[in-house]
Design a protein around this nucleic acid. Sequence first.
DNA 1: TTGAATACGAGACATGTCGTGTCGTAATGT
DNA 2: ACATTACGACACGACATGTCTCGTATTCAA
Lengths: 194, 194
Amino acid sequence: MAPVGRPRSDASHAAILKATYELLREEGLARLTLDKVATRAGASRSTLYRWWPSRGAIAMEATLDMLNRELSLEPKGDNALAEFRRLLKSVARAMRGSTGPIMAGILAECQRDPETLRLFKENLVAPRRAEVVPLLERGIQDGSIRPGVAPHTILDLTFGAIYHQLLLHVPTDDAWMDGVIDILVNGIAAKPTA
Amino acid sequence: MAPVGRPRSDASHAAILKATYELLREEGLARLTLDKVATRAGASRSTLYRWWPSRGAIAMEATLDMLNRELSLEPKGDNALAEFRRLLKSVARAMRGSTGPIMAGILAECQRDPETLRLFKENLVAPRRAEVVPLLERGIQDGSIRPGVAPHTILDLTFGAIYHQLLLHVPTDDAWMDGVIDILVNGIAAKPTA
DNA sequence: TTGAATACGAGACATGTCGTGTCGTAATGT
DNA sequence: ACATTACGACACGACATGTCTCGTATTCAA
């Protein structure tokens, strides 16, 4: 039970994550090397490899805290649809800063390393959806969202749109997000008889 | 005017693209190296570097023909919205095969090489949109799509959703695409009074 | 027929990154 | 004290990159 031997250095751990995060902002995940991280953190590459299996894993851990801090879902008294609308705009706004390119980099890394993709889905996508899906279900019950739509599909569409802009490096603004939400809410079909 | 010297070898050119395409299907863009391409094509790396600036550029050229063949937009007599619906389903279906992972790999490569992103937007996104945007505008005029929605935003949403599934390696089926289209067409808001 | 110009395949080279391993030293429990 | 584990520094082979040189092949023009 009692852990034996020299304990893990919290200082090193923190320094590594800090260095990783700084380098992510400066150069992006594509040009991040474990050597640069180790050097800046004053650590050795052995230590990095001891605790993380891959570059993606380090970047993920370094990014998660920041994301979780930037994107807090604070429910207000509104109906669920209005709340969802606010959530989307706050996400889009967060992606406008240096967070956007970092996210795009992580998505790219996920394509070359299945383990990073697993971490991404497990630590970011799944927890977020576990929060938002009930919100959308509540929207169906409080009458703001029509029944028959799958909450997950709503999220595929909306987050898909945001990812799309991120990956193609198309800057977004509030007007664009308003357009997305308008289509999502009202659809594109002409009204039967206005 | 008259080109002087030994002309470019069409055989080599074709062999390189063929080898690239095969390797893309077998291992994906992430594990594609120019060395493997050259070896399989019976060419030398010098030749690759002479004609293409980067790995992404080769992969792009090798992929474009195939995509352009797989995704042909054949207008039928329907109204524009119905035609758009068919287009989306055919895209989703195409992405279900080995084309999907290749596209995801290209999107990933775009994050590490701006030149590849430029090629992607210029040779794939832009031409496609140039075809589809008029289709959607026609939909506004023939009364199947309500006015006030930006065609480009419709495409951000729908292709965003498809990319989203590709990047997260979520397999799609016709039912999922139907759900996406239903939301896109009808929106998620509860009808005022059914 | 010769020669200039260009492409080709083969392969060498320095560089950078990766993943692993070794070493001496530091810090904890028993 | 001693076993155990973490640490930083460094070395190693493997691989991919981008550039280069070489001898050879193919074309046009003089």
